Amino acid sequence: MTPASLPSHAAHPDHGPQAWSAVGAMTLCVAMLIASEFMPVSLLTPIARDLHASEGMAGQAIAISGLFALVTSLLIPTLASRFDRRQVLVALTAVMVASLVLIAQASSFGLLMMARALLGVTIGGFWSLSTATVMQLVSPPHHARALGLMYMGNAAATALAAPVGSALGGVLGWRGVFWLLVPVGLVTLLWQALALPRMPPARAIPPGRVLGLLRRPQVRRAVIATMLTFAGAFATFTYLRPFLETRAQATLAQLSLLLLSLGAAGFAGTTLATLWVGRRLYTLLWAVPLLLAAVTLALLPAAPLLWLTALALAAWGALNAAAPVAWFNWLAQEVSDEPEAAGGLMVAAIQLAIMAGAAFGGLLLDQLSIDATFVGGAVLLVAAAGVAAGVGAHRPQPQR
């Protein structure tokens, strides 16, 4: 029996090989999405030069993927509820591959913008459906493990995208880097087509269902806490390079190693968060942003000492990687009746927070200093911890 002909109940096997193969395909797609989204950051200058655009314009072309991801994440639960989710995920992955081909052969700034918009559609659509899909692929006792595995793809791509892109770009050119991603994308597409079981629509999701979840107090608190967490993190993360260059006086080689250590530490953060969510989920929701704020502030006095900066960056990377693991496990546990709509809402909140946080950090940097950027990010993270503590304090108590 082929995967396409599996009965609908096979979409929730008891952690069999077919289910874990499907989770593996989802993990590879996550890695590809993160790599595709952030690879251009290290290739910004040659992209701008070849397409006769300023670096600021090229940066906007990169940012447009976030805008389309935001819009798609709000629409995809309703659209996907009318189709077999396997077909939706495969179609979204095909759009990702098409965007990579378009980026690699973009001959104008306009074509680059269109390709990045297509990538944003896949980012918003895939992330919105990923938690609900994992919940359907494996039985509830294995949700945390499966989500943790999927976020390993996130950690791997975050660690490798910028340094690998920079290194390969110097040898192959920026177009060559994206051409190398195309066959990996095709492998991802084939794996999903073979491994994902049929997941026929169980019910239609009305257009207002996604935002309607905000009427639930717990969901409203969680969305605010998530937005503050990601806004605070990206207010800092976006400007780590100028901080390391000016405050830590890092050379280009040292900069690459420091950023690699930050990304590599994400493996540890993802692993530990996956191990702890079963018993310490609500503690993680507030402790992660609070500790991340402390490490962000600690980077300022640590900067003159390179080894101390490296340690602080590793801690920052581990904590930053733990945040999405905690929040998407919260979603799987507390909004299990509406996983598709909740996934869309959460992804939209994160995308909006990333854009707002980056803009906030940039404003502080331009108007004040890099120190102000880090302090501003830490303030948002402390606020996130306070709201997240309320999420735990007000969670429904089990009936006795």
Rank of each mutant, 00 (worst) to 15 (best):
P7G: 00
Q18V: 12
Q18C: 12
V23K: 12
A25F: 09
M32P: 04
P40R: 10
V41R: 00
I47A: 00
L51D: 03
A53S: 11
S54C: 09
G59M: 03
S65E: 12
L70A: 06
L79V: 11
T93F: 03
T93Y: 02
V95K: 01
L102I: 08
L111T: 13
S128N: 14
V134T: 10
Q136V: 08
V138I: 15
P140Y: 06
R145A: 13
A157S: 10
A159W: 01
A161N: 06
P163E: 13
P197T: 08
R203S: 09
A204W: 07
P206G: 02
G208P: 03
R215W: 15
R221T: 07
R221K: 07
A222V: 11
V223F: 15
M227Y: 03
F243V: 00
L244V: 01
E245R: 12
T251R: 02
T251D: 12
G269I: 04
T271L: 09
V288A: 04
L300F: 11
L306H: 03
A315L: 11
A322C: 10
A332G: 14
A332W: 13
A342K: 06
A348F: 08
A353E: 04
I354E: 05
L363V: 07
V379T: 06
A388R: 03
G390R: 15
R395Y: 10
